[in-house]
Design a protein around this nucleic acid. Sequence first.
DNA 1: CGAGCGCTTGACCGGCGTCAACACCCGTGG
DNA 2: CCACGGGTGTTGACGCCGGTCAAGCGCTCG
Lengths: 243, 243
Amino acid sequence: MIMTTSIPIHPERSWRGTADCQACTIRKAVLFADLSEDDFALFHAPIDDLAFRSQAVVFRQEEKALGIFTIRKGMIKLVRNMPNGSTRIVRVLRDGDVVGLEALVGGAYDYDAVALEDSEVCRIPLELIHNLSQNGKNLHKGLMQKWHQAVSTADGWLADLNTGTARQRVAHLALKMRSPNDLDNTLLFSRQDMGAILNLQPETVSRELRSLVRQGILRQTDAKARQFFIQLPNALERAALDC
Amino acid sequence: MIMTTSIPIHPERSWRGTADCQACTIRKAVLFADLSEDDFALFHAPIDDLAFRSQAVVFRQEEKALGIFTIRKGMIKLVRNMPNGSTRIVRVLRDGDVVGLEALVGGAYDYDAVALEDSEVCRIPLELIHNLSQNGKNLHKGLMQKWHQAVSTADGWLADLNTGTARQRVAHLALKMRSPNDLDNTLLFSRQDMGAILNLQPETVSRELRSLVRQGILRQTDAKARQFFIQLPNALERAALDC
DNA sequence: CGAGCGCTTGACCGGCGTCAACACCCGTGG
DNA sequence: CCACGGGTGTTGACGCCGGTCAAGCGCTCG
């Protein structure tokens, strides 16, 4: 760690090195799942492995795009700035998801992307993607899958999280934000962010969340009221549906 | 027209012939915009040119997919059936839009697709798309664009049409549904469908719409209250934003 | 220890959902 | 031709959910 002294102690964004995609532990989950040895020979530009601290901006809406991103670890919110000045969180992406696909079409990003917690992402240069699309044959399927996933989650967030009472929405979000490997725990965000997702006011989110806690369905497991243990999963699912 | 007598007088769905894509008048707007002469040589399966009457079902959610669709004329709604039994309209697609892209990934459709008015669509067999992806190089860009458009409108419908007061939403929808070639007229749907889009009750939609008419911003131009002339475009835009 | 930020809780009120009655259009059958 | 009936749109009355404003609390950091 020779260069340590020249790097800020708490950088918002830091360079962790050049990624070795072929050996990547989560490769099967991501864009490069189907690539062959030959395809990897086409890798010329380096793929940067980046770290973002919570609240750090990955990219901004309208910004000229340099690449697309794969999330190795963490959570990133896509924020849309409305003409009237308010903001809406369109979706939250997690491990294995791809961020900024839209850059492949217009060369610019459609949203602000902001880390919700400390996150690690790989930046894949646009040229590499275009190169692989032209000369390799195996990226196509992966791209289609990621596009499909984007539309699918977009529609899901619309249909699930913007329907029904405040209670239903909060319950739905809690279910959606369970950690994939530990379905009894759910990791949420600031009340304001949750409001921007659910189309509710922060106070309302707080109320409904507390109500779920008082009823013993959730139990808060940290000081900041972001992390909850799901004590009664069935009750939570019922709350998300109707009564 | 030899077979005319054997065809029902008012078929919900009818076959209009085999499309000649190379000569298609709206080709520049659609998926095949960038295809070359050579690419068209790869067309083996026929592309059916179909007509659907208003309210006819183009395909159903979960149904095994035979192809993807390009809209030549008309409007098609994508309907999502929620677990609790209710339905949400996720978006409405129009001339030049592609319906059912998701079939390229999973082989099934993610929504019900229903014609909102009499419509004409071309059905492109899945094999043809896969074939062109493998052997032609020029479809890739078109597919990317259509995927991008799908995500973009999905997010737009979420952000624009599910935010703000009932009045703002109705105004927003009226703006979004202007005919592209005649920006002074807008074509809407049943109050129930509008409610399923805006996440409002039919009565509320009716009220707000009437209110816009009473204020002279809109003028109804048909008996069924589906078509409106926009008398004060500026006022409508202001209504969509804030006051 | 104090300042500041975010979360929580309370009080109040307005917008929208709910239920119900009525108007209007259109197709059907007498 | 008119009478009838069903479906859809419109309008009213009323109650409740959630927005708004404001105060208090607890954590974190300087």
